[in-house]
Design a binder for these strands. Structure first.
Length: 366
DNA sequence: GAGGCGTGGCG
DNA sequence: TCGCCAAGCCT
């Protein structure tokens, strides 16, 4: 069994290894720990194809830890815009500053020191240290969980702490201590390209002769996971307050909130017994101490977040009275419509901006 | 331990 | 259309 994982699997990997920008060695023939780190953070809960263009842009703008540490958060978030889970970007930014302050700009090769960085959990530590420094730590990510639960036909809830500890122990035993980075990448690559969640390609799997799930003819039965609760739905109303100079009013979200640090159009939840238009007027009164009049609907956007769904109604608004002032302490800004691209917005807001620009190009006759 | 935290693709 | 999921971490 151990031989299959240490010989057949890495041998398969040598022929199946997909080229990725963070897999390229540097001038010294080694991988840059910083680039490995950035890639591993971007790859958390994110597909390779999605993360790749972000990685290229990010590392071109911030080639070193110091470049990242010296940047402003706005620019970091702008480069992360659309990638989701924005706390990853905020944490990575803070971690870079910590590396400069405490480690002279060198990514720590010590597990305890690396784990002390914000956003560095067990997976990321094992991945970065094994890939960049050949530290013998086995990664346990979604791919490894899937491969191991199938090969060993483990039918306990894969999300439970007990099962995870069992799987980590298994990975630790199977890991090739002579080539930890290669072993980790081999298992993850197998999970990503062959031992996939649906329709796994078992006939061309290097582990199929030892795989118990394959022997049973039911690879997709693993891993076993409990069902998630259905997610709630909310109706949201936002206002596009535009002044005579075609500037739009936007507001930055609090650092510790969902989508923290990104910009958005002011608004909020539509309450029971309220129309979206009424909610828009009320929210702008509450958040910005202004009276507005809803003039035209601009867009209706359906969007799914990680734990709830929304329908967002966006209205063009006319400022009736008052000067917008943040009631919550979060910054506001008047931005020319064609300069909205310079700010980081959540996806749903980006949809609204697309509709606004389309509206300006071909206004609907009312 | 359970739940918060984005987005896009796929069957 | 909809639920599930993808190289997790934090509280």
């Amino acid at each position: 069994m151990r031989a299959a994982f240490r010989e057949a699997l890495p041998a398969w990997f040598d022929g199946a290894r997909r080229p990725m920008p963070w897999r390229e060695p540097g001038p010294d023939g080694r991988r840059d720990p910083y680039r490995v780190w950035v890639s591993e953070v971007m790859l958390q809960q994110t597909r390779v194809e999605t993360a790749t263009p972000y990685f290229r842009r990010f590392t071109e703008r911030f080639p070193t830890v110091r470049d990242l540490a010296e940047a402003g958060q706005d620019e970091v978030l702008k480069l992360w815009e659309g990638l989701g889970y924005y706390s990853r970007a905020r944490n990575l930014h803070r971690a870079a500053q910590q590396v400069v302050a405490d480690h002279d700009g060198e990514v720590p090769s010590d597990e305890e020191a690396f784990r002390a960085l914000p956003g560095a959990g067990p997976y990321t530590a094992a991945a970065v240290l094994s890939l960049a420094f050949d530290t013998p730590l086995a990664v346990l990510d979604g791919n490894v969980i899937r491969v191991l639960t199938r090969v060993f036909a483990i039918d306990a809830d894969a999300r439970s702490g007990r099962t995870r500890r069992q799987l980590q122990d298994l990975a630790d035993v199977l890991l090739d201590p002579a080539h930890p980075g290669r072993w980790n990448e081999s298992v993850m690559e197998l999970g990503a390209t062959v031992c996939t969640p649906r329709s796994p390609a078992c006939p061309r799997c290097p582990l199929n002769d030892v795989c118990q799930a394959y022997a049973r003819g039911a690879p997709e039965a693993f891993p076993v996971v409990s069902k998630r609760a259905p997610v709630p739905h909310h109706t949201i109303a936002v206002g596009l307050v535009i002044d005579d100079a075609s500037r739009v009013l936007i507001q930055r979200r609090p650092e510790d909130a969902m989508l923290g640090g990104l910009w958005e159009f002011p608004g909020g939840k539509v309450e029971d017994g309220e129309t979206p238009g009424e909610a828009c007027v009320r929210e702008l009164r509450e958040e910005l101490a202004v009276e507005v009049e809803v003039s035209a609907p601009i867009a209706r956007v359906e969007h799914a977040y990680s734990h709830f769904r929304i329908t967002m109604h966006a209205f063009r608004c006319r400022l009736v009275s008052g000067e917008p002032a943040s009631e919550t302490g979060e910054p506001i800004a008047w931005v020319p419509i064609d300069a909205l691209d310079d700010y980081a917005f959540p996806r749903a807001n980006r949809r609204v901006i697309e509709a606004l620009i389309e509206e300006a190009r071909a206004p609907r006759l009312l």
